[in-house]
């Protein structure tokens, strides 16, 4: 599995498409409702998936663990939402923490971790 993280609008999906020769149809984008399509070659918007988990009271790391055979060769994309001021609302705080824990878990399992900065890829792992 290859993990790509980076701030908003930094070119994460575009990079994934070019590096892994993906088309739009290969990418499942989490919109904050329902399960991701675990069979997709690329799952993007994991921060939205984490928000949905918080709202439904489930642990995103546990959900990912339960499906690990399905994403072990996938490309996963998460927005870096971790550098701002502590958010005011309790839900936003829980969201940020859940997404952060998910990223740390996925990074530990990943073959490669890439961080996007202004459209440029930097290898973290």
């Amino acid at each position: 599995m290859d993990l790509i993280i980076g701030g908003a609008y930094q070119g994460k999906r575009e990079y994934a498409m070019s590096r892994f020769a993906l088309g739009e149809k290969d990418i499942f984008i989490c919109r904050g409702d329902g399960e991701p399509d675990w069979s997709a070659r690329c799952i993007a918007g994991l921060e939205s998936f984490a928000l949905r988990c918080v709202r439904e009271g489930v642990d995103p790391v546990e959900l990912f663990r339960a499906h690990e055979r399905q994403w072990e060769n996938s490309v996963l994309i998460c927005e870096d939402i971790f550098c701002g001021v502590v958010p005011l609302g309790a839900e936003n705080r829980a969201w940020r923490e859940a997404a952060g824990r998910l990223c740390a878990y996925l990074a530990s399992q990943a073959d490669s971790v890439t961080r996007m900065f202004c459209g440029l890829a930097g290898r973290l792992k």
Binding site: G7, I81, G84, V85, W95, A99
Partner: peptide, 10 residues
């Protein structure tokens, strides 16, 4: 010079 304003949870 630009500003990196893309990594908060708001």
């Amino acid at each position: 010079v630009s500003d990196y304003i893309y990594s908060d949870a708001i």
